[in-house]
Design a protein around this nucleic acid. Structure first.
Lengths: 159, 159
DNA sequence: CTTGGTGCAAACATTTTGCAGCACA
DNA sequence: TGTGCTGCAAAATGTTTGCACCAAG
């Protein structure tokens, strides 16, 4: 597949759809067109920008792409996807809930440029061992973590 | 001062009040009894439990302690205290905003026991250098960070 | 066909705001 | 004594839910 054909996301749509479908069946729920379209829209968004989205953003994006889904279905589906482990909530501000695709990035962190409001997902592999060590010291097992780092454009010379 | 006389918090009330008073004066605002009582209640809460609080919890605590403050004033004062750097928002769940006193703990993290819902503030000094290094690599200057670690009681043997 | 799903609108929970009277500086 | 502050209640968000009709399995 050509990496510049705008269809990179197709490489993950199929497996994620299958995962979602299986998870739904496990609990006796149905795989509907709306649910498929919402997951597809989330995957498409993941390609652009930071991949972090909010319910109303997603709704607006889908509407302007010609889909007619309701707010209620967006919220209900987001909850199902989070329960399935396909997306995860990221704690990034307190105004409203933010989510991102969770495939393989359960340990990632977000770097927020407070000047430009740009959100940059970063990897902090060192944090996992640090986290596990701290939990173990208290007889706990780490389940996950959330990290947000706030930064601004430094005026100091960068060597 | 006797550390078991229940008045440990007095050691920080005075300086924090002074800071708040000064910050208010700087922008032409007034230091009112309500604002003083709210800051006092926050400092008192910091002594108990984890020091993390929500607006409605604080309101309830103050009401049952005999103060008569309104919801609106609580919210308005929390915002002022956050702007003054005296308290800071912690991102811990998306349901509602959580805050804690900020004196000297701008780099701390929270460990949440998801079984008991207990919130344990912890120190992660290693994270500061990690954070600064990552920001500098992108020409940014770290302003702060938020870390929440979720853990549960481990069933595995802890050596 | 049966059980669950959707859209809509109303309900909710949290936070913000407009306004009339009150109080600090 | 004026500008800012308070309480109240209404408005504004963001999210959830009840219900009637529709559709997947």
């Amino acid at each position: 597949m050509n990496p510049s054909d705008g269809l990179e996301h197709l490489s993950i749509i199929e497996p994620l759809c299958a995962v979602f479908r299986r998870k739904l069946k496990q609990v006796g729920l149905k795989y509907t067109p709306e649910r498929a379209q919402i997951l597809d829209a989330i995957i498409r968004r993941d390609g652009e920008s930071s991949g972090v989205f909010q319910a109303d953003e997603l709704l607006a994006a889908m509407r302007s792409a010609g889909f007619r889904v309701s707010k209620a279905t967006i919220y209900r589906t987001i909850k199902l996807l989070a329960d399935s482990g396909i997306i995860q909530q990221v704690l990034f501000d307190a105004e409203s809930a933010h989510y991102q695709l969770a495939y393989g990035k359960s340990a990632s962190a977000l770097l927020v440029n407070v000047d430009t409001r740009e959100i940059i997902p970063i990897e902090l592999p060192e944090l996992v061992s640090l986290r596990d060590r701290i939990c173990k010291a208290r007889g706990l097992a780490a389940e996950g973590h959330r990290v947000v780092i706030y930064a601004r454009v430094g005026n100091q010379m960068v060597k």
